[in-house]
């Protein structure tokens, strides 16, 4: 408030009443004045995001092939009954989505944190290290899928080379993407490769908020490296950890490109996830009702995770 342009501060009481009057007046005119700024965003958001989401819920109660002009028949909860009781792929897809989210919260997050802690130290060439770890994060997931598919190639891929190098023929026999018990985890490895560097950058950003004075003070008090990390660094990383966790959940719920590019959901639908199965039902099998019922399940799962987080953030903001 101490800019030279600002008028001398009026007595406190008067100032408050002026402010209150301004707020009261503003809330009347407010929305009309704000509308020109909001209109393009709201229009696009309503037509292309909210509208289709609502439509997706509506269509989940209908049977429809998705073709223009084909009749839409109201079937109530039939699509849900079908996906829950007669569609074994749905449960595989749900299970895989859950596995994917849980693994993502552990492996790439821990890896990102370790890399960030290591590369937060002054080291020779650390910028080059950071870049190299981060680069997979800017590549198109579909390109990554192709790179990894090639690496996993059973005849000419890395497995074969490693088998020759270490004289371990069993390495050459692993069907990275062809074994239905292994394929999901092979794809997940590519996901770790893609995402760990992004987590590292986020954690590095968070580490900049760790006050060096606190670290120094803790050291002077005789704290060892672990104690400093546990009591100074980790608490300071809490906000960024929340961001990483939320981003990880969002990104792993919608994993799609990598799976399409590497297995297309196979072998024998063993790598299906909800996002892809919904897409396949709608566009591949022309079961719009089923596809949208799966999409609705996905939406509900997302909201169950997201809404408490939003409420929590809003509360935090109010407190600060």
């Amino acid at each position: 408030m101490s800019t030279t342009i600002a008028p001398p501060a009026p007595p406190a009481g008067r100032k408050r009443s002026v402010a209150r009057k301004r707020v009261a007046k503003a809330s009347h005119v407010g929305f009309v004045a704000a509308l020109p700024f909001l209109a393009p965003a709201l229009a696009a958001y309503l037509v292309f995001v909210i509208g289709p989401m609502v439509e997706s819920v509506r269509l989940s109660f209908f049977e429809w092939s998705g073709f223009q002009g084909a009749p839409q028949e109201f079937v109530g909860l039939k699509n849900y009954v079908r996906i829950f009781t007669q569609d074994p792929v749905f449960w595989t897809a749900l299970g895989n989505t859950v596995i994917w989210v849980i693994l993502s919260l552990v492996i790439p997050v821990a890896l990102g944190l370790v890399l960030a802690l290591a590369l937060n130290r002054p080291l020779f060439g650390r910028n080059a290290f950071r870049s190299l770890f981060y680069i997979p994060g800017v590549l198109a997931p579909i390109a990554i899928a192709n790179m990894w598919r090639w690496m996993y190639n059973p005849n000419f891929g890395v497995g074969v080379t490693l088998a020759e190098m270490f004289n371990a023929p069993w390495l050459a026999e692993i069907q990275w993407l062809g074994d239905r018990n292994l394929a999901l985890y092979s794809i997940f490895a590519a996901f770790v490769w893609q995402i760990a560097g992004t987590n590292m950058v986020l954690f590095l950003a968070g580490l900049q908020s760790v006050a060096t004075e606190h670290v120094e003070a803790a050291k002077l008090d005789g704290a060892n490296a672990w104690q400093v990390f546990r009591n100074v660094t980790l608490p300071a990383l809490r906000p960024v950890t929340v961001v990483v966790v939320v981003l990880t959940i969002i990104n792993s719920i919608k994993v799609f490109d990598l799976i399409v590019g590497m297995t297309g959901g196979g072998p024998a639908q063993s790598t299906q996830v909800l996002a892809l199965w919904s897409f396949t039902q709608s566009f591949g099998n022309h079961e719009y009702g089923m596809g949208n019922a799966i999409a609705t399940v996905l939406l509900v799962i997302t909201l169950i995770i997201v809404v408490p987080y939003m409420v929590w953030t809003a509360r935090q903001e109010k407190h600060s």
């Binding site: 509208g51 989401m53 269509l59 719009y288 999409a295």
Partner: peptide, 21 residues
Amino acid sequence: GVIAMGAMVPIQVAIAPLFQV
């Protein structure tokens, strides 16, 4: 809040109706 929520919902939730739009 409502707008921010859109950032968190997977695109695939809306993709079939989006195609229709």
